[in-house]
Design a binder for these strands. Structure first.
Lengths: 355, 355
DNA sequence: CTGAAAGCGCTAACAG
DNA sequence: CTGTTAGCGCTTTCAG
């Protein structure tokens, strides 16, 4: 009924047309040296002419595996991860691999998803993006292919044994952010955290917040931390907006001069809440984010934040995984420094107490 | 060297263990009715126990095709498209298909990429996201699988014959946006367009702008349109910022009270340029966007824009394609209305001339 | 250097 | 109802 007829040609068709054996064609398209240059040329020209592309399924079946690398993302709606896919596709493609993107819901067990994908797509490796390590050890053991965790939360005190990771030190960099705020003279620093039981990135960053406070002898005031509701989605504008609103409503009794946001997206939501409250950033409240989303530079005021070296992290994660697959190198834990970018959203307080 | 040994088991292993024939296993896992219920149960229990997952490559090879739907995105860095992937994955998955995401560079011929992917991955269908129709007819003809264009620019005057599309009427909705601005009393309306020769979405929206102007007897002043440089990437904050800056620099001689931006992302860049110029939105300049990115609601001022019904469009595109593949329905051209969301970035001018 | 032949794991006739 | 058999298109020994 449709315009059928041009069924994709096979290696056999090419062989017939070229008047050679089927394996000669195979050698030609696979750059096998054991073939006369001119035969190869002849075959290849027919290949081009016929627009022949080898059937991956057949290849993979024969090879008993694929060149697929799974990219499992928890929280794909997060712009931060969205910016990474392209990088992975390029990086992996450069070395002959194909990426298979798969979004994982917040409530799905990411390792189970990985297991299923690994088998179904015969993955050669997996890159986990976002989320956290669910159960200390167990689940990851089941994976048979190499994998690396990229920007997956982890507790540096109990470093992962035998698992490759690429990330920034969420806790440490958060501490640095808060220290910066303190240097600028802020002492009453509110924070928008993740969910209350968050052990993932949100939890790590909150830990950094508390650490910096205690280092500086500032008392931790739980009235200044705004958690996200259990049923909300973390790292969205909306949840940032709502969380900031709660802080702002209680500001009379629990005042603060600076607001640290667990992520840039949350900070943008907070911007809105602050302006709706008739307040100004940074003259009334200084705001600091984390991640370094591109739009932060264009906000007014532009957002002071800890920017994660996304492209470096992507490149490393891809290399680490591929090297592991190709058996060149072994497990590594890479930690990148975030970069504190000073922009307009933080004001130095005049009266800097103590010292 | 590694923890090998647990090589994925095959249908044959299962058969042996269950003491049945190989095809019985095949039938069991494929829900074939021609098999006794209890045999099936027995087989399936072993399947579960062994954690067996059929090898897709073998299946696909046998079936001579896959259940893969390619999603080719031109401009994957554009947040607008990023929000769509998840929807496609869900929508396609619901009907048993798998999505294969592929980013296409601005300078790559998208149909050629499609052709290659189609063969290599044995796609069953393709969804094109973004970009435009390059050469009126030729290239798409080469595709042998069904496909649909989603938010791909097209000239409604010369509707596509035989090609399914899902989009908003970019020209018409832009016209509506400009008419809204005019209703609000604006006559000097600047616009940030795409590249000068842009025949894609950018071009369509610009056409709408001109159309609205002439409908309302407002003279078109090319000094009020800011194109993006040929070598820039369209639809980025940066290009919006730069384009707005040029407009602002010339504002003395070529004044305007409103600025229409070809996309929300561009509008955010413009916001920045405006505030750097010491001006205010909307008191000095009203700004209007197009697309309806989520963050627009949280900007200060929140962005008045034409929001595209993304999830409806995604659902329709997926259904249209799958129906075509399954031969249920045929080619259709779906046009969705955008929704004009009035927010804070447009001010009504007091003195509304004429009428 | 090149061809013939044997599968990779699975499905789909075709016989029991 | 169930088992046997023949490939799907490709890579890869193993002989020419």
């Amino acid at each position: 009924m449709k315009d059928e007829g041009k069924k994709p040609c096979t290696i056999r068709d090419i062989a017939r047309e070229a008047g050679v054996g089927i394996s000669t064609v195979s050698r030609a398209i696979n750059d096998d040296p054991r073939i006369k240059a001119e035969t190869k040329e002849r075959v290849l020209s027919i290949v081009r002419e016929r627009n022949f592309v080898p059937n991956m399924s057949a290849r993979n079946l024969q090879a008993r595996q694929t060149n697929n690398i799974g990219i499992l993302v928890r929280g794909i709606e997060n712009s931060f991860f969205q910016s990474m896919y392209k990088g992975f596709e390029t990086e992996l493609g450069r070395r002959g691999y194909t990426s298979v993107l798969h979004a994982v819901e917040e409530d799905e067990a990411i390792v189970d998803e990985a297991l299923a994908l690994e088998r179904e797509k015969r993955l050669k490796g997996i890159i986990f993006l976002g989320g956290k390590i669910e159960d200390p050890d167990i689940p990851f053991q089941k994976l048979v292919v190499p994998f690396v965790l990229c920007t997956v939360a982890q507790d540096l005190k109990a470093p992962l044994k035998g698992i490759s990771t690429v990330s920034v030190d969420d806790e440490g960099e958060s501490r640095r952010a808060i220290n910066y705020l303190i240097e600028k003279g802020h002492e009453r620093i509110a924070v928008i955290a993740g969910k209350e039981d968050d052990q993932a990135v949100g939890g790590q960053r909150l830990k950094g917040y508390r650490g910096a406070l205690s280092e500086n002898g500032i008392e931790y005031d739980e009235k200044l931390v705004s958690y996200m509701p259990k049923d909300s989605v973390e790292f969205t504008y909306e949840s940032g907006y709502l969380a900031a609103k709660r802080l702002l409503e209680a500001k009379k009794e629990h005042d603060f001069s600076a607001l640290f946001c667990i992520s840039d997206s949350v900070a943008f939501g907070a911007y809105r809440a602050i302006s709706e409250a008739g307040l100004n950033v940074p003259s009334d409240i200084s705001v600091m984010g984390f991640d370094g989303l591109p739009i932060g530079k264009y906000m007014t005021p532009s957002l002071t934040t800890m920017v994660q070296p996304v492209s470096d992290m992507v490149r490393s994660a891809a290399e680490l995984l591929l090297d592991e697959i190709e058996d060149k190198k072994c497990v590594k834990n890479l930690f990148y420094d975030a970069q504190l970018i000073e922009r307009e959203s933080v004001k130095a307080l005049k009266q800097k107490k103590r010292r």
